[in-house]
Design a protein around this nucleic acid. Sequence first.
DNA 1: ACTGTATTTATCCAACAGGTTAATTTGTCT
DNA 2: AGACAAATTAACCTGTTGGATAAATACAGT
Lengths: 257, 257
Amino acid sequence: MVHPTSQHNRATGLAKQKTNEKSKAKRVLRWQRDPEGMRLRILEAAKQEFAAHGLAGARVDRIAAKAGANKRMLYYHVGNKEDLYLTVLEAAYEKIRAEERSLDLEQLDPPDAIRTLIGFTWGYFLRNPEFLALLNSENLSRAKHLKRSTKVKSMHSPFVEMIRAVVSRGVASGDFQAAVDPVQLYISIAALRFFYLSNSATLSVIFGRDLLNRQAKDERLEHMVALVLAALTGRSPAVFGREQALRVGVPAHTGAA
Amino acid sequence: MVHPTSQHNRATGLAKQKTNEKSKAKRVLRWQRDPEGMRLRILEAAKQEFAAHGLAGARVDRIAAKAGANKRMLYYHVGNKEDLYLTVLEAAYEKIRAEERSLDLEQLDPPDAIRTLIGFTWGYFLRNPEFLALLNSENLSRAKHLKRSTKVKSMHSPFVEMIRAVVSRGVASGDFQAAVDPVQLYISIAALRFFYLSNSATLSVIFGRDLLNRQAKDERLEHMVALVLAALTGRSPAVFGREQALRVGVPAHTGAA
DNA sequence: ACTGTATTTATCCAACAGGTTAATTTGTCT
DNA sequence: AGACAAATTAACCTGTTGGATAAATACAGT
């Protein structure tokens, strides 16, 4: 019955402060209006929930609880479950596109530009692991929702053009030997990081080693950069992947998936 | 009420043939026992269902219907939903491991061995698209089920060793310039194909072009082989990816995801 | 034919999940 | 202060879903 801060302490401001000890219980603790904040909390909670359980596995009640809100609020502020899902997806794309646009490769020499590009996206996905899951979820539904989103369709990644430019410069300068379809290269770079992170759970079980600790992640980044640069420059930058990989051999487990 | 062939025509043999028109309706059409067949149909149906909708989205009733069975049969023959899921997963791993073992690279010179390896796995995933979805599903649940499966954990892929051997030979023969950690290379090769196929739905929307038609798939295979071989040999095998990629430029859309 | 067990079917159910209704509270404008 | 819209809450409704029960049927051994 008591509205006040019913679910969470979503103290948006100077909310509760015992106020007047006499006034009816109803008025001791108050909730405040905060539509924008509420909407944001809902979207954040929904992102976590959808990322953690997928579209079908996500629970509307859990989202509400996590947002310190009421189920009715979701419908009031966003719409039904699928609307909510699409909104989350669109926000995720917007976020990554915005960060992508902040990257400037023009000053760097081609190999460094590639290094920077790979390092940047690697970092982004490490910082935003939910995005991986959201994309997988959307692919499971065969992009059904994305197709309906004119918003996302209009948000082109600047990376394809960046890659085209860098490769072009690299070929001209002699740094790179081969011309590559920038879309293919874009996909390949995305693949190298995406698969590793997205499938780290199963891969870790199969290989019997943790692929997400600091060292493993560093090694992976090193390997990806070396692989791509070796392909582009035609000069394998020393032994790539783990140093002494072949001489020393690889740990115990060596399954695969 | 009429048991006979109630859901499907799962004519396991010479099932219905109008038999004796006089005998009671109950006996006109008969179902036959076929435990092994039933189990297989259930697993196949379950594989499709789990691949299409994920673990949470899968519906036990749909699996039963698709298997031409009854819901009770699932519990009788396999167990509850999660048991069923794990069984499907284990069967999927068994299948790919079996095919993997059939691949013999020892006779081929190192570059051809790599080509063959990539082509083989590419083909496997094209022929078995459900496996992609199953793996994604399992990663969504952070390999919770795999961890419980001693079966899968003991099924090591022969590919890591094959790659180690091939790279080793390649370095010795001078075909390859760099030594690579075979596990990293294994993951990278897996990544190049997995991401492309698994994310083709969203990528197709973003790029505004179909990534799964014949030509696109051929180009992708070509690109993957070229990328890996260029990195290993240090000799970019001509322009890789799409011929004239840079000169001609790339189609209309060029977004990204 | 007779019987016990394996296999299969039809039916039911309690929990759950998404969505809706209606009441209550808050802030703002007058 | 009063009124009206925006925001929030609690309670309810209904179809679904995984799972369980119990009855029916088939088959093998005798």
